[in-house]
Structure formats: structure tokens, C-alpha cells
């Protein structure tokens, strides 16, 4: 298990953060995700095999951009 920190741009309403959470949680290997609209940041708890690219894809699928991604 690992924790990934994501900086996201393009969010501006509460359904935005909900959508990203939903999209992240749908990604195989992601156990939990939470996104803060106000900090423009999110965290995803996921299995080690989940790549940064997949996280980025999930955010993009919901319609937003990943600005930075880092592991804790």
C-alpha cells in the first residue's frame, strides 16, 4: 500500500472534487481517495502496482489536470 499526493488544477466546484474521487476510486488498485476542493489537492491510497500514470489518467478522465504527483 502507498499513499499518493496529487495536486490538481481545474477544480472549481464541489461536484468537481466528488467526480475526481469517484474516478480515482474506480481505478483498479485504488483503495481510497479524497480530494480537497479548497486546497486543490488530493490523496489516494492504493496498491503499490498503481502507477502515477494511471492516477493521472483517472483525474483526466473526470476532466481535470494533474499538476504534480508525489508519494509519501
Amino acid at each position: 500500500m502507498k499513499k499518493v499526493k496529487i495536486e490538481i488544477s481545474g477544480m472549481h466546484c464541489a461536484s468537481c472534487s466528488n467526480n475526481i474521487e469517484r474516478s480515482l476510486k474506480k481505478t483498479p488498485g485504488v483503495k481510497d481517495a479524497s480530494v480537497s476542493l479548497l486546497l486543490k489537492k488530493g490523496t489516494a491510497e492504493c496498491e503499490d502496482f498503481v502507477s502515477d500514470e494511471e492516477i493521472k489518467k483517472a483525474v483526466k478522465r473526470a476532466g481535470y489536470e494533474v499538476k504534480n504527483i508525489s508519494q509519501e
Binding site: 481545474g10 466546484c13 464541489a14 461536484s15 468537481c16 467526480n19 469517484r22 474516478s23 478522465r61 473526470a62 476532466g63
Partner: peptide, 19 residues
């Protein structure tokens, strides 16, 4: 434009938002 684009994209991908 960002609102229109985001909103329409949301409609097609079923990630609806207030846009």
C-alpha cells in the same frame, strides 16, 4: 469556454458537474 467545455465533456463522460 472553460465552463462550456468542462460542462459538455461532463455530459458525455457522465462526470456531471455544475458546469
Amino acid at each position: 469556454w472553460t465552463t462550456i467545455r468542462g460542462g459538455i465533456r461532463g455530459l458525455f463522460t457522465f462526470y456531471f458537474n455544475m458546469d
